[in-house]
Design a protein around this nucleic acid. Structure first.
Lengths: 107, 107
DNA sequence: TTATTTTATCGTAATATTGCAATATAAAAA
DNA sequence: TTTTTATATTGCAATATTACGATAAAATAA
């Protein structure tokens, strides 16, 4: 064993888990933070911003892209990354739903 | 290597990563869903609700507890679990901040 | 007391993630 | 063309996660 029993859960549960997994590493949080900090989409200098080697950052960017959290557009020699607002909205909605359901609770 | 370079990132980045990691597995999403679905806190029957063995669920509950996403109170023979609204609010605030910062973007 | 019930822990196998050196790819610059 | 620059991929070692059988712990019930 060892693998997640993905097939035992609903499509939405798996989808949300994939989104949260993409955000479950401090380097990927830092990448999102950086994309938010700068005024526009960022072409190239993510590698200089984080204390990780270039292949490692490339891998983290790939995971964020696979989860649809960021979009990358080729811009000459470099790639221009920015956050996908639709995916952010999807996670926000999930928590709005949680907050709504929590209203009727005791605890 | 293989371990996360936790020390290279800010306390808040690590804290958020820990919260998202706790939610990065469909079984743990399903547990949260179930705690929200039922009207009150749940004593005992989580194991019957999910297609996983009891030790596995116990482990997932422990991770949700460690991340402060759920609270467990001993209630006779069983344990009464419910969601911690403070932690939910913390994640919500994180996304409110993201949405706010995204407003000034182009993309 | 001895069951029974409920949850936790231990041990371990299978699998996944993390990080990076080395290398590859692709486009622009010289 | 060759060189430079930016990003991606490969391969691998170190570590973490997932799942569960076996077992323990702790409280109630009989």
């Amino acid at each position: 064993m060892g693998a997640s029993k993905t097939e035992s859960f609903s499509a939405e549960q798996n989808e949300m888990a994939i989104l949260f997994k993409a955000l479950s590493h401090p380097a990927r949080i830092a990448i999102v933070d950086y994309l938010l900090k700068v005024d526009s989409c960022i072409c190239g200098d993510i590698v200089n911003e984080l204390p990780l080697a270039q292949p490692t950052i490339s891998q983290h960017l790939k995971e964020l892209k696979n989860a649809n959290l960021i979009k990358g557009t080729i811009e000459g020699t470099s790639i221009c990354y920015c956050i996908n607002p639709d995916t952010v909205a999807k996670i926000e909605n999930h928590f709005s739903m949680i907050r709504y359901k929590l209203k009727n609770k005791c605890c």
